[in-house]
Amino acid sequence: MSGNGNAAATAEENSPKMRVIRVGTRKSQLARIQTDSVVATLKASYPGLQFEIIAMSTTGDKILDTALSKIGEKSLFTKELEHALEKNEVDLVVHSLKDLPTVLPPGFTIGAICKRENPHDAVVFHPKFVGKTLETLPEKSVVGTSSLRRAAQLQRKFPHLEFRSIRGNLNTRLRKLDEQQEFSAIILATAGLQRMGWHNRVGQILHPEECMYAVGQGALGVEVRAKDQDILDLVGVLHDPETLLRCIAERAFLRHLEGGCSVPVAVHTAMKDGQLYLTGGVWSLDGSDSIQETMQATIHVPAQHEDGPEDDPQLVGITARNIPRGPQLAAQNLGISLANLLLSKGAKNILDVARQLNDAH
């Protein structure tokens, strides 16, 4: 009898209710805020589980004197976190989706994509230029951005401005803007500013005609071990179906173009009346040469937790077992079709030249 009692006690200790789920994140304040929001949602869904947040620095956090596009290494903000995932030191990792490459290392998958916040870019102005827009900034004003995508589009749109690289986390960039006289304004992701509670610093939100956004911008991705079915089931509740389908289309477009950090590629997606609209573009580094096109596809946005595919093969690095396969494939095909259209119009040449120029500098 006593033996059975011990077995029952052991089973209770090993039951999922007692389990601590370890969540990996970057150390920056924004990353911690984003991770806290994901953990809060998981806690609400699984009140019996405990969650421990483990923060670590990544290569991208450490190399702050070089433009991201020049470092010449993929997975700048993800490699150390993936290493911890691989060694079973954490069970899942919360990322900004735009930091996750469209091809993940073997053994990993994006197990959830959370509801997207505003994906557009924002302009934050130096205190002396508050009330201005990019259009009304004085001639030769210097605007800071760490992104080739932003610089290429904005140089084309605002030729009277000069664009220079600015690195560091959000706090560091804002301090550089406010305390030094080098920059009249800087460009940042609206979602990051909003998550930090800095709505009052948003001086201008850039519309798609001015600057399309990065693939996955404004959404959070939760990376897990691809074979860890328990954790895949656990994080599945975080999937937002519309965000998922938009981001599958965007990531398929980028992957098929073979774009990345070192080339200016941008997108804009919208879901309306059962249609998914995808606009994508590529630019030369100075913005003088560009190709942009829009395509659409009829896609039914499923309700969360309709029964999805059981075999769960990944699409552009994403596993969404609780979302039907048909809409996911339709979104992926839309991204591939748009990429093929741009490639047929000469996108590869623009991107190759951009890559060579970026590598040469």
Rank of each mutant, 00 (worst) to 15 (best):
Q29N: 15
D359A: 15
L76P: 10
N349E: 09
Q181C: 04
R149C: 03
V23W: 00
G197S: 12
K128C: 09
L134W: 06
L154S: 06
Q217D: 01
R156T: 13
V263L: 12
S165D: 03
K348P: 03
G107H: 09
I186E: 15
I71D: 07
R175F: 04
G216R: 03
R26K: 00
K157D: 08
E73Y: 10
V20A: 09
L220R: 03
T279L: 06
K79T: 10
A330T: 01
V123Q: 03
I113G: 04
P264K: 05
A40I: 08
L76Q: 10
S69V: 09
A354D: 15
A191H: 01
K74G: 09
A67H: 04
F158C: 12
D230L: 02
A266R: 03
Q204N: 02
L85R: 02
T298L: 08
K87H: 08
L232G: 13
M212F: 15
K79F: 05
T145M: 07
S262Q: 08
A55N: 08
A84I: 05
L42E: 03
T35C: 08
D307K: 15
R201G: 08
E139K: 15
R201M: 02
D307W: 15
Q194C: 04
K227F: 03
P119S: 10
Q304T: 07
P138I: 08
G216P: 00
T190Y: 07
A297L: 05
D286T: 09
L76K: 14
Q217P: 07
G131V: 12
K227G: 03
T66F: 09
V103C: 15
T298M: 09
P313V: 13
P302C: 11
L234P: 02
E139D: 13
Q29T: 09
K98N: 07
G192M: 05
P106D: 12
A226G: 11
D91H: 04
T145Y: 01
G308N: 13
I71Y: 11
L137V: 11
A249S: 13
L234K: 12
Q180K: 14
L100Q: 09
V23C: 05
A303H: 04
K227P: 01
L76E: 06
Q194A: 13
G274W: 09
V39A: 12
W283T: 05
S288H: 01
S146G: 11
D289R: 09
I291K: 13
Y46I: 10
S147E: 03
Q180C: 15
K348Y: 02
A226D: 11
L343Q: 07
W198Q: 06
N340I: 15
M56K: 13
I113D: 04
C114L: 10
G48A: 13
G192Q: 00
S288W: 14
H268C: 07
L341Y: 07
Q155L: 09
K79H: 12
L342Q: 08
L193W: 00
V143S: 03
A330N: 13
Q34G: 07
V90W: 04
K348L: 14
Y213P: 08
V224W: 03
R175A: 11
F125Q: 15
L64R: 09
C247Q: 00
Q50G: 05
E52M: 01
L100H: 01
N169S: 12
K272C: 06
I186T: 14
H120R: 13
S37D: 05
L154N: 04
I21R: 06
L285R: 10
E209S: 05
G203I: 03
L134A: 07
K70H: 09
H256W: 15
H199V: 14
T58V: 08
